[in-house]
Design a protein around this nucleic acid. Structure first.
Length: 274
DNA sequence: ATACTCCCCTGAGAGC
DNA sequence: TGCTCTCAGGGGAGTA
Protein backbone atom coordinates (compact mmCIF):
# COMPACT_ATOMS: atom_id res chain seq x y z
CA UNK A 1 0.00 0.00 0.00
CA UNK A 2 1.38 3.37 -0.83
CA UNK A 3 2.34 5.23 2.31
CA UNK A 4 4.12 8.54 2.69
CA UNK A 5 7.39 7.52 0.97
CA UNK A 6 5.63 5.87 -1.96
CA UNK A 7 3.26 8.81 -2.40
CA UNK A 8 6.22 11.18 -2.31
CA UNK A 9 7.98 9.08 -4.94
CA UNK A 10 4.94 9.04 -7.19
CA UNK A 11 4.52 12.79 -6.81
CA UNK A 12 8.13 13.65 -7.64
CA UNK A 13 8.12 11.32 -10.62
CA UNK A 14 4.91 12.79 -11.94
CA UNK A 15 6.28 16.28 -11.47
CA UNK A 16 9.14 15.57 -13.86
CA UNK A 17 6.69 14.12 -16.39
CA UNK A 18 3.56 16.26 -16.46
CA UNK A 19 4.39 19.68 -15.02
CA UNK A 20 2.63 22.43 -17.01
CA UNK A 21 0.87 19.98 -19.30
CA UNK A 22 -2.77 20.70 -20.06
CA UNK A 23 -5.61 18.31 -19.31
CA UNK A 24 -7.54 18.22 -22.56
CA UNK A 25 -10.22 15.76 -21.60
CA UNK A 26 -11.17 13.19 -18.96
CA UNK A 27 -12.87 9.84 -19.04
CA UNK A 28 -14.31 8.44 -15.84
CA UNK A 29 -14.90 4.71 -16.18
CA UNK A 30 -15.75 3.96 -12.54
CA UNK A 31 -17.82 6.65 -10.87
CA UNK A 32 -17.01 5.86 -7.25
CA UNK A 33 -13.40 6.94 -7.65
CA UNK A 34 -14.59 10.54 -8.00
CA UNK A 35 -15.73 12.09 -4.73
CA UNK A 36 -17.64 15.03 -6.12
CA UNK A 37 -20.12 14.95 -8.99
CA UNK A 38 -18.72 13.38 -12.11
CA UNK A 39 -20.16 15.85 -14.58
CA UNK A 40 -18.83 18.75 -12.53
CA UNK A 41 -15.43 17.08 -12.17
CA UNK A 42 -15.06 16.55 -15.90
CA UNK A 43 -16.30 19.99 -16.86
CA UNK A 44 -14.09 21.81 -14.36
CA UNK A 45 -10.85 19.96 -14.95
CA UNK A 46 -10.80 20.38 -18.72
CA UNK A 47 -8.38 22.99 -19.96
CA UNK A 48 -6.44 23.29 -16.70
CA UNK A 49 -2.70 22.66 -16.33
CA UNK A 50 -0.67 20.82 -13.71
CA UNK A 51 1.18 23.65 -11.97
CA UNK A 52 2.44 22.49 -8.58
CA UNK A 53 2.88 19.15 -6.85
CA UNK A 54 2.38 18.79 -3.13
CA UNK A 55 1.73 16.06 -0.62
CA UNK A 56 0.06 15.89 2.76
CA UNK A 57 0.25 12.55 4.53
CA UNK A 58 -0.74 10.01 1.91
CA UNK A 59 -2.68 12.53 -0.16
CA UNK A 60 -1.40 13.76 -3.50
CA UNK A 61 -2.20 17.41 -4.17
CA UNK A 62 -2.07 18.70 -7.71
CA UNK A 63 -2.37 22.45 -7.96
CA UNK A 64 -4.05 23.31 -11.27
CA UNK A 65 -4.77 26.80 -12.61
CA UNK A 66 -7.99 27.28 -10.70
CA UNK A 67 -8.54 24.01 -8.87
CA UNK A 68 -6.90 21.60 -6.48
CA UNK A 69 -6.97 17.98 -7.58
CA UNK A 70 -6.61 15.74 -4.54
CA UNK A 71 -5.94 12.01 -4.89
CA UNK A 72 -5.66 9.23 -2.35
CA UNK A 73 -4.28 5.98 -3.78
CA UNK A 74 -5.52 3.90 -0.84
CA UNK A 75 -4.47 0.29 -1.27
CA UNK A 76 -3.42 -0.14 -4.85
CA UNK A 77 -3.95 3.07 -6.78
CA UNK A 78 -1.33 3.88 -9.43
CA UNK A 79 -0.80 6.34 -12.23
CA UNK A 80 0.55 5.34 -15.58
CA UNK A 81 1.59 7.65 -18.40
CA UNK A 82 0.96 5.77 -21.60
CA UNK A 83 0.55 6.20 -25.30
CA UNK A 84 -3.14 6.00 -26.28
CA UNK A 85 -2.37 3.06 -28.56
CA UNK A 86 -1.57 0.87 -25.56
CA UNK A 87 -4.68 -1.15 -24.67
CA UNK A 88 -6.45 -0.20 -21.44
CA UNK A 89 -6.71 -2.92 -18.91
CA UNK A 90 -9.82 -3.61 -16.87
CA UNK A 91 -8.49 -1.87 -13.80
CA UNK A 92 -8.09 1.51 -15.47
CA UNK A 93 -10.79 3.76 -14.02
CA UNK A 94 -9.94 7.35 -14.88
CA UNK A 95 -8.09 8.64 -17.92
CA UNK A 96 -6.73 12.16 -18.29
CA UNK A 97 -5.84 13.08 -21.85
CA UNK A 98 -2.75 15.27 -21.72
CA UNK A 99 -1.55 17.91 -24.12
CA UNK A 100 1.63 15.99 -24.97
CA UNK A 101 -0.50 13.24 -26.49
CA UNK A 102 -0.11 10.80 -23.62
CA UNK A 103 -2.78 9.46 -21.33
CA UNK A 104 -2.45 9.63 -17.57
CA UNK A 105 -4.31 6.54 -16.44
CA UNK A 106 -5.49 5.92 -12.92
CA UNK A 107 -5.28 2.19 -12.24
CA UNK A 108 -6.70 0.57 -9.12
CA UNK A 109 -7.47 -3.11 -8.68
CA UNK A 110 -9.43 -2.64 -5.46
CA UNK A 111 -11.19 0.55 -6.60
CA UNK A 112 -10.60 1.99 -3.13
CA UNK A 113 -8.81 5.10 -4.31
CA UNK A 114 -10.45 8.53 -4.35
CA UNK A 115 -10.00 11.77 -6.24
CA UNK A 116 -11.70 15.11 -5.88
CA UNK A 117 -11.53 18.53 -7.44
CA UNK A 118 -12.05 21.70 -5.42
CA UNK A 119 -11.76 25.40 -6.17
CA UNK A 120 -8.24 26.51 -5.23
CA UNK A 121 -7.93 28.14 -1.82
CA UNK A 122 -5.08 29.34 0.34
CA UNK A 123 -6.18 27.95 3.69
CA UNK A 124 -6.10 24.30 2.55
CA UNK A 125 -9.56 23.82 4.02
CA UNK A 126 -10.59 21.09 1.60
CA UNK A 127 -13.23 18.56 2.73
CA UNK A 128 -11.04 15.63 1.71
CA UNK A 129 -8.27 16.79 4.06
CA UNK A 130 -10.56 17.62 6.98
CA UNK A 131 -9.53 14.64 9.09
CA UNK A 132 -5.80 14.63 8.67
CA UNK A 133 -3.29 16.36 10.87
CA UNK A 134 0.29 17.44 10.34
CA UNK A 135 2.31 15.61 7.78
CA UNK A 136 5.06 13.58 9.44
CA UNK A 137 7.64 16.05 8.08
CA UNK A 138 5.73 19.20 8.98
CA UNK A 139 8.04 21.35 11.09
CA UNK A 140 5.13 22.48 13.22
CA UNK A 141 4.74 18.94 14.53
CA UNK A 142 6.65 18.32 17.75
CA UNK A 143 7.02 15.37 20.10
CA UNK A 144 5.72 17.59 22.87
CA UNK A 145 2.47 18.28 21.05
CA UNK A 146 2.09 14.63 20.11
CA UNK A 147 2.61 13.69 23.73
CA UNK A 148 0.04 16.19 24.94
CA UNK A 149 -2.54 14.93 22.49
CA UNK A 150 -1.94 11.24 22.93
CA UNK A 151 -0.56 10.12 26.23
CA UNK A 152 -3.93 9.98 27.99
CA UNK A 153 -5.84 8.33 25.17
CA UNK A 154 -6.90 4.72 24.86
CA UNK A 155 -5.35 2.49 22.28
CA UNK A 156 -1.88 1.20 21.59
CA UNK A 157 1.27 2.52 19.95
CA UNK A 158 0.56 1.03 16.54
CA UNK A 159 -2.95 2.44 16.49
CA UNK A 160 -1.51 5.84 17.27
CA UNK A 161 0.99 5.59 14.43
CA UNK A 162 -1.75 4.56 11.99
CA UNK A 163 -4.10 7.33 13.07
CA UNK A 164 -3.84 10.15 10.53
CA UNK A 165 -5.50 12.84 12.67
CA UNK A 166 -2.34 14.19 14.27
CA UNK A 167 0.52 12.52 12.45
CA UNK A 168 -0.21 11.76 8.81
CA UNK A 169 1.55 9.47 6.38
CA UNK A 170 2.32 6.25 8.24
CA UNK A 171 0.68 2.99 7.12
CA UNK A 172 1.03 -0.63 8.10
CA UNK A 173 4.55 -1.22 6.79
CA UNK A 174 6.26 1.77 8.37
CA UNK A 175 4.29 1.48 11.61
CA UNK A 176 5.89 -1.94 12.13
CA UNK A 177 9.33 -0.66 11.24
CA UNK A 178 9.03 2.35 13.52
CA UNK A 179 7.95 0.19 16.48
CA UNK A 180 10.88 -2.14 15.91
CA UNK A 181 13.32 0.69 15.54
CA UNK A 182 12.15 2.19 18.84
CA UNK A 183 12.36 -1.17 20.59
CA UNK A 184 8.70 -0.87 21.51
CA UNK A 185 6.03 -3.52 21.17
CA UNK A 186 3.27 -2.28 18.84
CA UNK A 187 0.55 -3.20 21.33
CA UNK A 188 2.08 -1.12 24.12
CA UNK A 189 -0.72 1.05 25.52
CA UNK A 190 -0.13 4.68 24.66
CA UNK A 191 -0.64 5.59 28.32
CA UNK A 192 2.50 3.60 29.18
CA UNK A 193 4.68 5.73 26.95
CA UNK A 194 6.61 8.58 28.52
CA UNK A 195 7.72 11.89 27.11
CA UNK A 196 11.12 10.47 26.06
CA UNK A 197 9.40 7.66 24.17
CA UNK A 198 7.52 10.25 22.12
CA UNK A 199 10.79 11.99 21.29
CA UNK A 200 12.25 8.74 20.07
CA UNK A 201 9.12 7.79 18.15
CA UNK A 202 9.08 11.02 16.19
CA UNK A 203 12.82 10.91 15.48
CA UNK A 204 12.64 7.30 14.30
CA UNK A 205 9.49 7.97 12.26
CA UNK A 206 11.24 10.70 10.33
CA UNK A 207 14.47 8.77 9.97
CA UNK A 208 12.72 5.71 8.57
CA UNK A 209 10.43 7.65 6.25
CA UNK A 210 13.39 9.67 4.97
CA UNK A 211 15.36 6.50 4.28
CA UNK A 212 12.40 4.99 2.47
CA UNK A 213 11.97 8.07 0.28
CA UNK A 214 15.65 7.89 -0.57
CA UNK A 215 15.15 4.26 -1.64
CA UNK A 216 12.14 5.21 -3.77
CA UNK A 217 9.64 3.58 -1.43
CA UNK A 218 8.84 -0.04 -0.73
CA UNK A 219 7.75 -2.44 -3.46
CA UNK A 220 5.42 -5.18 -2.29
CA UNK A 221 2.48 -6.87 -3.94
CA UNK A 222 0.08 -3.99 -3.47
CA UNK A 223 2.53 -1.30 -4.48
CA UNK A 224 4.58 -2.20 -7.51
CA UNK A 225 6.27 -0.13 -10.11
CA UNK A 226 4.08 2.73 -11.10
CA UNK A 227 5.45 5.00 -13.83
CA UNK A 228 8.36 2.64 -14.14
CA UNK A 229 9.58 3.47 -10.66
CA UNK A 230 10.37 0.55 -8.41
CA UNK A 231 11.21 1.23 -4.81
CA UNK A 232 13.94 -0.70 -3.04
CA UNK A 233 13.14 -0.13 0.61
CA UNK A 234 11.72 -3.65 0.95
CA UNK A 235 15.37 -4.73 1.11
CA UNK A 236 15.78 -2.66 4.24
CA UNK A 237 12.66 -3.79 6.10
CA UNK A 238 13.63 -5.32 9.43
CA UNK A 239 10.36 -6.93 10.52
CA UNK A 240 7.47 -6.20 8.15
CA UNK A 241 6.49 -9.24 6.09
CA UNK A 242 9.39 -11.18 7.55
CA UNK A 243 7.56 -13.68 9.73
CA UNK A 244 9.57 -16.85 10.26
CA UNK A 245 12.81 -15.09 9.43
CA UNK A 246 15.31 -14.04 12.04
CA UNK A 247 15.54 -10.62 13.63
CA UNK A 248 18.48 -8.70 12.13
CA UNK A 249 19.46 -7.51 15.60
CA UNK A 250 19.10 -10.53 17.93
CA UNK A 251 18.31 -13.47 15.66
CA UNK A 252 15.00 -14.26 17.33
CA UNK A 253 12.28 -15.48 14.97
CA UNK A 254 9.95 -12.71 13.84
CA UNK A 255 6.31 -13.47 14.41
CA UNK A 256 3.12 -12.20 12.84
CA UNK A 257 0.23 -11.19 15.05
CA UNK A 258 -2.85 -8.98 15.05
CA UNK A 259 -2.69 -5.54 16.62
CA UNK A 260 -5.71 -3.31 16.37
CA UNK A 261 -7.06 -5.66 13.72
CA UNK A 262 -4.01 -5.23 11.51
CA UNK A 263 -1.41 -7.75 10.46
CA UNK A 264 1.67 -6.87 12.53
CA UNK A 265 5.24 -8.16 12.54
CA UNK A 266 7.30 -8.08 15.67
CA UNK A 267 10.46 -9.38 17.31
CA UNK A 268 9.25 -10.15 20.81
CA UNK A 269 12.80 -10.15 22.17
CA UNK A 270 13.72 -6.67 20.91
CA UNK A 271 10.25 -5.26 21.38
CA UNK A 272 9.12 -5.75 24.94
CA UNK A 273 5.63 -4.73 25.82
CA UNK A 274 5.67 -1.97 28.40
C1' DA B 1 -15.88 13.88 22.03
C1' DT B 2 -14.54 9.15 21.60
C1' DA B 3 -14.95 4.33 20.15
C1' DC B 4 -16.78 0.86 17.77
C1' DT B 5 -18.69 -1.53 13.29
C1' DC B 6 -19.71 -1.60 8.62
C1' DC B 7 -18.64 -0.73 3.98
C1' DC B 8 -16.26 -0.14 -0.27
C1' DC B 9 -13.69 -3.99 -3.80
C1' DT B 10 -10.89 -7.74 -5.85
C1' DG B 11 -7.53 -11.34 -6.02
C1' DA B 12 -4.86 -14.54 -3.47
C1' DG B 13 -4.81 -18.45 -0.90
C1' DA B 14 -7.09 -22.06 1.76
C1' DG B 15 -10.22 -25.81 2.00
C1' DC B 16 -12.90 -29.29 -0.04
C1' DT C 1 -8.68 -29.38 -11.55
C1' DG C 2 -12.10 -26.28 -10.13
C1' DC C 3 -15.27 -24.48 -7.23
C1' DT C 4 -16.52 -21.69 -2.98
C1' DC C 5 -15.18 -19.29 1.12
C1' DT C 6 -12.41 -16.10 3.82
C1' DC C 7 -9.58 -12.37 4.34
C1' DA C 8 -6.71 -8.06 3.83
C1' DG C 9 -6.74 -3.20 4.01
C1' DG C 10 -7.32 3.11 4.48
C1' DG C 11 -10.46 5.84 5.83
C1' DG C 12 -15.25 7.78 5.72
C1' DA C 13 -20.00 7.14 7.38
C1' DG C 14 -23.02 5.75 10.64
C1' DT C 15 -24.16 4.38 15.37
C1' DA C 16 -23.76 3.76 20.49
Amino acid sequence: MPELPEVETVLRTLETQIKDLEILDVEVLWDNIIVNQNAEFIKQIQGQHFREFQRRGKYLLFVLDESMLIVHLRMEGKFYLLDPSIPRDKHTHVILHLSDGREMRYHDVRKFGKMALYPLRKDFDYPMLANIGYDAFDERLSAEELYQKWHKRSGCLKQMLLNQRFLAGIGNIYADEICFSCGLHPSTPVTHLNRADFDRILVETRRILRGAIKAGGTTIRSYTSSLGVTGLFQLELKVHQRSGKSCPVCGQEIIKMKVGGRGTYVCVKCQKKQ
